[in-house]
Amino acid sequence: MAVKAIGEYRFPSRSRQELYGDDQLVSVWFADNPWWCAAAMFRAPQAMTWGDFWTQMVVPYAEEDPDWKADAAYSFSLWGVPLTPRPDQTLAELGIEHKDVIALRAA
């Protein structure tokens, strides 16, 4: 159902990918850890490797949890589909798109 309006009603998204240049927004959802009230959202280059994303973004965020272990085994999924990233793959190569949510669980 469309908005009922007094004139034409069409405006661009205020968070479309192009507003972030070569970057995109990616959320990491610590699905089995209630310490985090919500998934973390990052702005990351599409060409960033998983290894860099992990060490430069996820770990500095996650280590605020006193029980977090960066070197533990984790499993990942993207909208319910298992994801097995290699450190050298880029986010784009992994099929991670703007405003995707990567779910992370202790393996």
């Binding site: 959320s27 959802w29 009230c37 919500a38 973390a40 959202m41 990052f42 605020e64 006193p66």
Partner: peptide
């Protein structure tokens, strides 16, 4: 309880980043 232990150890749970909205 976990946060109390965290505080006792010198922490205070402030998120170092931004949440998904």
């Amino acid at each position: 309880e976990k946060e109390r232990r965290n505080i006792a150890a010198g922490g205070r749970h402030f998120v170092r980043g931004l949440p998904q909205l």
